[in-house]
């Protein structure tokens, strides 16, 4: 399984990232998310990061790039289910609100089908 899986469910683009997201794979991931958003034209983009073990600045950059492309397309962008460490990184980066995590529900993951 690659670090990114993508599924579309009626206007919602569900992305799931897993493993370490870092300078090694952030480029292709950014590109793949971008294409998925531009092709799917979703109204909601949900990124499940429950399986992400580590993010470096490039990995964070990939999420920001996803935020930007989703926002540019008029979609709502949400990052869901970060582990404590990853959440801590979002906090430091000041991205908790931007990632739709401020309401404190921790995000419910994409529905498994």
């Amino acid at each position: 399984m690659g670090p990114l899986s993508v599924s579309v469910d009626r206007g919602t683009l569900c992305l799931a990232l897993n493993g370490d997201i870092d300078f090694v794979n952030s480029g292709p991931i950014t590109q793949a998310i971008r294409e998925a958003v531009l092709q799917g034209r979703p109204t909601l983009v949900r990124v499940d990061v429950a399986e992400v073990s580590f993010l470096d600045s490039s990995g964070l950059g990939a999420l920001v790039a996803a935020l930007r492309v989703a926002t540019d397309c008029g979609a709502v962008f949400r990052v869901e289910r970060p582990n404590a460490n990853v959440y801590g990184q979002f906090e430091i980066a000041g991205l908790v609100e931007m990632f739709g995590l401020a309401d404190g529900d921790g995000g419910r993951g994409c529905a498994r089908r």
Partner: peptide, 25 residues
């Protein structure tokens, strides 16, 4: 990451004011 402030053997991480990653929004 917030800077660390050390005074006479005690170190604290300064409490960070609000601020988002540059280039995100």
């Amino acid at each position: 990451p917030a800077p660390l402030h050390a005074r006479a053997g005690a170190t604290t991480e300064l409490t960070a004011p609000r601020g988002t990653l540059l280039g995100a929004v």
